[in-house]
Computed example of a mutant assay.
Amino acid sequence: MISKIARRGIPLLSLASLAGCNTVVFNAGGDIAAQQGQLIIVSVLLMLLIVVPVIVATLYFAWRYRQGNTTAPYSPDWDHSTRLELLIWGAPLLIIIALGLITWISTHLLEPSRPLTRLSEGRPIPASTKPIIVQVVALDWKWLFIYPEQGIATVNELVTPIDVPVRFKITASTVMNSFYIPTLAGQIYAMPGMETTMNAVMNKTGTFRGFSANYSGAGFSHMRFDYKATSAADFDAWVAKTKAGGGALNRTNYVELAKPSEKHPVEFYGAIDPELYSKILNMCVVEGTPCMNKTMAADAQRAKGDMAMKELPKEEIARRVAAQAAAEVCTTPTKTEKK
């Protein structure tokens, strides 16, 4: 009797435990995450159109043609049915086409760098609305958020107003990470020396969890931060409070901040070096380090000059090479001059 109760109770306990799960993606507060959740549901339902009938048919055939059922028809010479072949191959093909079409459309509509066209369903973005810029830097093992327009920065705390588009510009200091706030939008990679862009909007206030979804070393498990969605008035008050708190983030203390640390506390900076993010992105925060963008521009200019040289007549190329060699001889000191 006890064993029967236990067997019946296990499924109920499983359902009860699932009821406590926080399905953030299916109950998202941001419009992009909400659309992604709907996409998952639609995809699962389309696939169930095949999965459920196959399971039902498997159980039916196992029962119908069991050994003890002598009334079931027996056709040992049967080998083909055009109608059955069309059903077996046609139905999955139609579902694959539908899934492919939905995926193609949603991939373009929800592409992270694409500017937003609405705040939520049925609410287009007013023409005068300007998105908030947040520069995100994945450090070891913490998150740095720079607000260039507000002139402030935070560590392990992100605050944005609701119903206002936010444009995230994302990079990393050393290794690749993945920036992810499940209730806001999908995850996007943060890579050193590169910048990825994500546009998103939050529609309800609250405090939510953000984290790195890509393993990046020993402190990865604690690479989390609080995301606070507030009203516009509360956001302005928070910015003013942060500015009044003092402290400046510049190239010198950024180098100290970028050193690996675990469970890093929340920090606020009331002022920032306006060129800091550009230096981080181009990996030249340390004084004397050449910036990647300048190095690449010089390389491009050099390559352009080489291509132009190749298009010149052979006689002109020979003349320029000889002139350059003569110039080098004239400017190179002799052994007597060196002495």
Results as ranks from 00 to 15, higher is better:
residue 6 A to H: 13
residue 9 G to F: 04
residue 12 L to Y: 05
residue 14 S to Y: 03
residue 14 S to N: 03
residue 18 L to P: 01
residue 20 G to C: 08
residue 21 C to Y: 10
residue 23 T to L: 15
residue 24 V to Q: 04
residue 24 V to M: 09
residue 24 V to F: 10
residue 25 V to S: 15
residue 27 N to Y: 05
residue 29 G to T: 08
residue 32 I to A: 06
residue 35 Q to S: 12
residue 37 G to I: 02
residue 38 Q to D: 14
residue 39 L to W: 12
residue 40 I to E: 09
residue 40 I to S: 11
residue 41 I to P: 04
residue 42 V to W: 15
residue 45 L to R: 06
residue 45 L to W: 10
residue 47 M to Q: 10
residue 49 L to V: 15
residue 55 I to T: 15
residue 58 T to I: 15
residue 60 Y to D: 08
residue 62 A to H: 12
residue 63 W to M: 13
residue 63 W to D: 14
residue 65 Y to K: 02
residue 67 Q to V: 15
residue 71 T to E: 04
residue 72 A to N: 12
residue 74 Y to N: 14
residue 77 D to R: 11
residue 78 W to V: 08
residue 79 D to A: 14
residue 80 H to V: 15
residue 87 L to N: 06
residue 95 I to D: 05
residue 97 I to V: 15
residue 100 G to T: 02
residue 105 I to H: 05
residue 105 I to K: 08
residue 110 L to I: 10
residue 116 L to D: 03
residue 120 S to K: 14
residue 121 E to C: 10
residue 123 R to K: 12
residue 124 P to R: 03
residue 132 I to S: 03
residue 134 V to R: 01
residue 137 V to C: 04
residue 137 V to F: 02
residue 140 D to G: 04
residue 143 W to P: 01
residue 145 F to W: 13
residue 150 Q to R: 09
residue 153 A to L: 01
residue 153 A to E: 05
residue 153 A to F: 01
residue 160 T to K: 00
residue 161 P to V: 02
residue 170 I to A: 00
residue 173 S to T: 06
residue 175 V to N: 05
residue 178 S to Q: 07
residue 180 Y to M: 07
residue 183 T to Y: 07
residue 184 L to F: 11
residue 184 L to A: 06
residue 187 Q to F: 08
residue 188 I to F: 03
residue 189 Y to I: 09
residue 193 G to C: 10
residue 201 V to R: 00
residue 210 G to C: 02
residue 211 F to R: 01
residue 212 S to G: 11
residue 212 S to R: 05
residue 213 A to W: 00
residue 213 A to I: 04
residue 217 G to C: 11
residue 217 G to P: 04
residue 218 A to M: 06
residue 219 G to R: 03
residue 220 F to S: 05
residue 221 S to L: 09
residue 221 S to H: 13
residue 224 R to T: 13
residue 228 K to A: 12
residue 233 A to H: 07
residue 234 D to C: 05
residue 237 A to G: 09
residue 243 K to Y: 08
residue 243 K to E: 01
residue 247 G to Q: 08
residue 248 A to L: 12
residue 250 N to V: 11
residue 252 T to N: 08
residue 254 Y to S: 02
residue 255 V to K: 15
residue 257 L to P: 06
residue 261 S to K: 08
residue 261 S to Q: 09
residue 263 K to R: 15
residue 266 V to G: 10
residue 269 Y to P: 01
residue 269 Y to R: 04
residue 270 G to Q: 06
residue 271 A to T: 10
residue 273 D to G: 11
residue 285 V to K: 02
residue 286 V to G: 12
residue 286 V to K: 12
residue 287 E to H: 07
residue 291 C to L: 01
residue 297 A to I: 02
residue 299 D to Y: 11
residue 299 D to F: 03
residue 301 Q to L: 09
residue 306 D to S: 14
residue 310 K to A: 09
residue 310 K to Q: 10
residue 311 E to I: 11
residue 315 E to K: 09
residue 325 A to L: 08
residue 326 A to S: 11
residue 327 A to R: 14
residue 330 C to P: 09
residue 330 C to E: 13
residue 331 T to L: 10
residue 331 T to M: 12
residue 339 K to G: 13
residue 339 K to S: 14
